[in-house]
Computed example of a mutant assay.
Amino acid sequence: MAALCLPVLRDPPVDHADVGAWVEALGEATWIVLSGADDRRCRVITTLLHGNEPSGVLALHRWLVERPRPRTRLVMLVANVEAALTPPHFTHRSVPGERDLNRCFRPPHAGASGALARAVVEDLQVWDPECVIDLHNTSGNGPSFAVATQRDPRLERLAGQFCERLIVTDFRLGSLMELPLVEPGLAHCPMLTVECGGALQPEAREVAGSVYRRLAEWPDLTDLVATPDLDILVHPLRVELQPGVSIAYAREPQPGVDVTLWARIDEHNRGLTLPDTFLGWLGERGLAGLRAWDAQGRDRLPELLCERQGRLYPRSPMRLFMATTNVEIARSDCLFYLVPL
């Protein structure tokens, strides 16, 4: 095997009862390798690309205590250790001042986050896995779902093992799951993101745990059966703030704030959002403070959302997901995604 860029722990004992102490002992991005009954094949799970999304590493720590013996070599990456350990622990998406690691998997690989992303890419090509599953937490509370970059029966079969919904996105943001589209050496490898639910939701850790257990137990990925009732949504749009627009989350409109979203807007991450669903209040800028991009860079806000007496509503039925109540994520990333129906 060629040399790896990142450190490797092979079949490690878990010496720390506390997951924070365990991550501190890792100290940096680390591959954790479990020998399999058949080490000629390899499967990869990545976690903690965002330091404030700990369910994957919490589930991994708990699962390793059981000393599992997978069917194939199973390789787990605990990625953004530095961000996770920035005080307060598990609250920083990225190292302060650094780029979002999960936006750095396309050239140029600038800065420390870019260098780490490039190291992950090079190591993945060495591992040559059968599949890669990237574990995340949603930025607000909500059900688990999977995300893929294309309609692919292999990805749909994988997604159906863990979630009831698959989002097929045509946004290209530089995320890890896009690597088969940009790295010829990984073009054969199905890569899927599993959003396990909110970081504080106990069930999110259970979803993450199911990924480790099932990927370890399956004899052959080609034997997986499609889930006929998997809900597949395509072509999501990103609703964002316009530059310089202020935002708050509250139960009443905030004076001097351009957009005040309902304090529990993340409740709409479940089910159908109808045209009479109140989403928040708009200040003097009105709808001009928002935009709704599709993957072709078109702002489709006017056909999707509307203002009625200073309040924000959908124009038609839609599915919302990844709606956050975190002001920093709203400013730096997006307010929510939606798929019109």
Results as ranks from 00 to 15, higher is better:
V23I: 15
D123C: 02
A295D: 01
V19S: 07
T277E: 11
A29L: 09
P87A: 12
A29K: 06
L4H: 10
C306T: 13
L237Y: 05
A2T: 14
S139C: 08
I32C: 09
P153I: 02
G142E: 00
F278N: 00
I329G: 00
V182Q: 02
C189W: 04
A119V: 09
W218I: 14
W22P: 04
E164M: 07
D231V: 13
L49Q: 09
R264G: 02
E206L: 13
A79C: 13
R331A: 06
V19F: 07
N102R: 02
P314H: 13
G36C: 13
A187P: 10
P107D: 04
L241H: 02
L282V: 04
P107C: 06
A148S: 14
A83K: 00
L237M: 09
P7Q: 13
D231C: 15
L176D: 04
L261N: 03
V211T: 08
R71M: 11
V81C: 05
W293A: 12
D134C: 11
L335R: 10
D266Y: 01
A159V: 08
P96A: 06
T324D: 01
L166K: 09
R300S: 11
L179A: 06
N137V: 04
E303G: 07
A119H: 08
M318H: 09
P87I: 12
A216E: 07
D11F: 10
T72E: 14
V95S: 03
T260P: 00
L304A: 09
P96T: 05
A295E: 00
A83D: 04
L101D: 01
E28R: 15
A330V: 10
G140R: 00
S332T: 15
V147W: 02
W22L: 12
L215H: 08
A159G: 13
L279S: 05
Q254T: 15
T91C: 00
L272Q: 09
L304N: 08
G140N: 02
A323E: 00
L341C: 10
D276Y: 12
G174N: 06
P228A: 05
Q150P: 01
A117W: 07
L101A: 03
R264S: 07
T149L: 12
P275H: 14
V225C: 14
T324P: 03
M1S: 09
H136I: 03
D152H: 11
E303A: 14
M318N: 03
R251T: 13
L6G: 08
P87N: 11
T227R: 14
E156W: 01
D258Y: 01
Q161C: 15
